[in-house]
C-alpha cells in the first residue's frame, strides 16, 4: 500500500491505495464520489473524465499514485453554493441527458474545452464542439442536445 494525497474539489484528501489502483477507483471507492462513472474498460468512452491540474483526463487511465499532489475537480465540485454550474444548468434546460450515464464525463470535458477555446480566442462552433467530444460516447446517442447544451453554456460562461 502507498499513501496518496491530493486536493479534490478544493479539499485536501489522502488514502492508502495499491499501486495498481486507478484514479477513478480512488475517487469512487476511497472518496465515495460516485458521480465520476466507469463506462468501459478500454479507455474509450469518457464517462470517467475529471480535471487534473486543469486538464481533462480519463480517470480510468491514470494511476492514483501518479496523481499525488495534484488538484482534481470532479463533477461534484462544479456547483457553487447550491447553484449549478452554467454547463450543468444548460444540460438540464436543453434536455442534454437521457439516462445520464455519460453526462458527468460530457460536462467535465465540455467545461475544459469551452475554457480552452475562450483563452485561445478560437471560435467554438458546432463542428469544433463535435470534434472536442470525440472522446465521449453517449450510449443513448443524444448528441444533438448535448451539442446544443454546450453551445448554450458556452454563451454564458
Amino acid at each position: 500500500m502507498t499513501t496518496v494525497s491530493m486536493t479534490v474539489n478544493g479539499k485536501a484528501v489522502s488514502g492508502d491505495v495499491e499501486d495498481r489502483t486507478l484514479l477513478v477507483d480512488f475517487i469512487r471507492v476511497n472518496l465515495g464520489l460516485t458521480g465520476t462513472h466507469v463506462g468501459c474498460d478500454t479507455s474509450q468512452c469518457g464517462a470517467c473524465v475529471v480535471h487534473v491540474d486543469g486538464k481533462a483526463i480519463k480517470a480510468c487511465t491514470m494511476l492514483a499514485v501518479r496523481a499525488e499532489g495534484s488538484e482534481i475537480t470532479t463533477i461534484e465540485g462544479l456547483a457553487k453554493d447550491g447553484e449549478l454550474h452554467p454547463m450543468q444548468a444548460a444540460f438540464k434546460e436543453n434536455h442534454g441527458l437521457q439516462c445520464g450515464f455519460c453526462t458527468p464525463g460530457m460536462i467535465m470535458a465540455a467545461t475544459e474545452f469551452v475554457e480552452r477555446y475562450k483563452v485561445s480566442g478560437i471560435e467554438l462552433d458546432e463542428a469544433a464542439i463535435r470534434k472536442e467530444l470525440e472522446g465521449n460516447i453517449c450510449r443513448c446517442t443524444g448528441y444533438h442536445n448535448i451539442v446544443r447544451s454546450i453551445e448554450d453554456a458556452a454563451s454564458k460562461m
Binding site: 483526463i57 480519463k58 487511465t61 470535458a109 472522446g135
Partner: peptide
C-alpha cells in the same frame, strides 16, 4: 491523435 483526454496524457 485519439481525443482531447488522450492527448492531454
Amino acid at each position: 491523435i485519439g481525443d482531447p483526454h488522450v492527448r492531454n496524457m
